[in-house]
Simulated assay, not measured.
Amino acid sequence: MTIKKSVSDCELISIPKIPDTRGNLSVIENNLIPFEVKRVYYLYDVPAGAERGGHAHIEQNELLIALSGSFDVILNDGQTVKTVTLNKPYEGLLITEGIWRELKNFSSGSVCLVLASEIFMEEDYIRNFDSFLMAKNQ
C-alpha cells in the first residue's frame, strides 16, 4: 500500500449561505463535494484540552464542518504539516485519503460535522503514525 496524496490536495470548500433575518440557511448538495456521502457523524461535548482524530484513511474522503464554535485541524502528509482553523458553518474542509489528521483546540460548545465517502470500516484506518509514514514512503 502506497499513499501519495499531499496536504495540498485538501481544500476549503464554501457552502452556500442563504441569509435571512430569521436565521441563515446553508445547503450541501451532491454537486458540492467530490464524493457520494455514505456516512454522517458529528463530534460534540469535546472536553477542554481533548484531541480527536489521530489517524489517516486509506480510501475514505471526508468533509469537516464546524457547525458551532471552532477547532483546529492539523493535516500531515508525512512531508508537510498544515493547520486549518474551522469556525464557520458555511465552510468545510475536504480531507482526501492518505492524510493524517488531528483535531485540537475545540472551543466550548463546538460541533464538528463529518460527511464521509465510506461506511465505517476499521481496516481503512491507519491509527499508528509510524505505520502511516511507512505507507507514505513505500
Rank of each mutant, 00 (worst) to 15 (best):
A56E: 01
K4E: 07
G54N: 09
R52G: 06
Y125P: 02
A66C: 10
E97A: 15
Q138C: 12
N128W: 00
V73Y: 04
G78V: 02
K4D: 12
H57K: 01
K5N: 14
F71K: 05
L94C: 08
L25V: 07
K88W: 01
I74F: 04
A48Q: 14
Q79P: 02
I18Y: 14
N76I: 01
G69R: 04
V84G: 03
E123A: 12
P19K: 09
E97G: 08
D77P: 01
N24A: 14
E122V: 00
E123T: 12
I15M: 09
Y90D: 15
Y44R: 06
K104M: 12
T96W: 05
V37Y: 10
Y42R: 07
Q60Y: 05
I15S: 06
I18C: 13
C112V: 04
S8V: 10
F71R: 12
V81R: 15
L86W: 03
V7N: 11
E59P: 00
A48D: 14
F106E: 08
K38V: 06
E97N: 14
L133W: 05
P19I: 04
R22M: 10
Y90G: 11
T21M: 13
Y42G: 14
N87Y: 06
R101E: 11
V46K: 04
A66N: 05
E118N: 12
N128S: 13
K17H: 12
F35I: 13
F129H: 14
P16C: 14
P19H: 06
E62M: 13
V111M: 02
H57Y: 06
L113I: 08
